[in-house]
Structure formats: structure tokens, C-alpha cells
Amino acid sequence: MTQLFLEQALNGLQFGLMLFLLAAGLTLVFGIMDCINLAHGSLYMVGAYFVAAAAQAADSFWIGLGAGVAGAAVLGLLLELTLFRQLYRRDHLSQVLATFALILIANETVRLIWGPAPLMLNPPEALSGPVEIAGFFYPAYRLVIIAFGLAVAGLLYLLVAKSRVGMWVRAGASNREMTEALGINVRGLFTAVFVFGAALCALAGGLLGPLLAVQVGMGESVLILAFVVIIIGGIGSIRGALVGALIVGTVDTLGRALLPTLLRALLPADAAATLGPALASILIYLLMAAILFFKPQGLFPARA
């Protein structure tokens, strides 16, 4: 039991960290530009495809990851310059429509290029086996993902909390007009944040590729999880995104693994069998509702 718990907790941590990579870029785009981007999940999907395709071509996971992330960053740059720049000043409805359109285009284009079947992405040879920690075996590759996630989280923290650019970003998230008034190159800042967000998406997509299928539609479900993370954490807050992501990752993973067992102990087998999976699948949404009820602005609101 404790072993199962430890294993699932690690899985939850890993999932949470990947959600953080997705939510970090998104929460900044929402917070600083006040722009809703539904196509963030598409960047994640396209990024995963880039990584998978590049890894196949180069026959190396790591080269694929690097090339894929770079490719997604370039794509992000193009999107920002051509479309998003026009959207920042538009109303939310226009942003929803345009980015929804991007999802349609992205899904169909991917299908057109790579076909409907999922792409295979293999983890690096050296990491494909399990390693022993504290008396149980855990996939080495998942540990690497955790390490990656922690490293990026740490880097982001340093960047946002300590650097000059980070200061602008924080200022922008809490008061955009003020930032503009201070003469900071807001356009450049927006572009940089957007491109950075796109790169993080591809990184998450590439890292998760060997664990999940690289397929059309993979972006949509994960996008909504990223939303839940941001709602819980508070728009525009990196710290909120990290806390929210870890909460969502662990609660979801542990809920799915342990809730059915737990319910079996409490309820008649019949009721537990029907209620367990249903409850587990909506656990994070219930959590979100509860947090919203008490803190409508999320746990760490960036705007006062």
C-alpha cells in the first residue's frame, strides 16, 4: 500500500510538473496580455509532433527534443507576429474565436501531414528501464521528467523573481498600464513571453510523448487541465501556477489510483464500483469549485 502510494505520488509529481510547464506560459499570456489563448494546447500537440518527427529523423530522442522545442518556438514567434499581436487589444470573444479557429487548423493540418494514426516516440535507450529507489522499482525515464520539471521550475523562478525581465513580467501581470507608462518595450516583452510559452509547451509535449500517445486532439484535454491549474493558482502568477499544477497533478493521479480502493472500504462494492471512477475523474473539478467558492480570484491573485 505505501509502495503504491509512493509510486503514485511520484507519478502525480511528474504529471504536475508537466502541467506546470504548460500553465506557466499560459498564465503569463493571460495575466500580462489579458488574452485568452485556447490554442495553447495545440502548441503542445504540434510541439510533440515536431519532437517525434525530429527524433525519428535524427534517430535520437535528445536531438529530437531540442529540434522540436526550437521548431515550436519559431512557430510561436510567427503566430505572435502575425495573429496574436492583433488579438491583444480585441475583446475576449474575438480571442476565443480566433484561437479556436487555430485549433481547428492545427488539428487538420497535423492530420494532413502525419495522418490519423498516433506517432511513436521512444524514450532514450539508456532510460527505458526501471531503477530501484527506496525498495521499489520506478521507471528511470519518469525520474528524468521529474528532474527536467524541477529544473525548469527552478529556472523560471529565478527568471521571474530575480531578473530584470522577470520584474517587468510581474509588473505587467499586476498592472499593465503602469508597465507601459514606465516605457518598457511591452511589445517585445509580449513576444518574448509568448515564444517562451510555446517552447515550454513543446518541451512538455516532447517529454510526455513516450508516455502518452502523440496524436491529434492530445492538446485539448490537457489545455483544460492547464486552465484548472490557472484558475486554482490565480491568473498571472507563476507561483500560483506551480502550486496549482502540483495540486492538480497529485490530486488527480492519487484520486484515480486510490479513491476506488478507499470507497470499497467505505461503501458496498456495488456503489463503490459505479461511484469510484466517476468521482475520481471529476475530483479536481470539485476541488476547483471549492477553491472558487472561497477564493474567486484563485490562491495567489496577481492583481490586487
Binding site: L83, L97, A98, F100, A101, L102, I103, L104, I105, N107, E108, T109, R111, L112
Partner: peptide, 11 residues
């Protein structure tokens, strides 16, 4: 793949 057309239309 008409969704591509639709998407461009919407944008």
C-alpha cells in the same frame, strides 16, 4: 480537411 478552410474563414 475542410476544418482548415473553416479555421481560416473564422480568423
Amino acid at each position: 480537411h475542410w476544418h482548415i478552410v473553416l479555421g481560416l474563414l473564422l480568423i
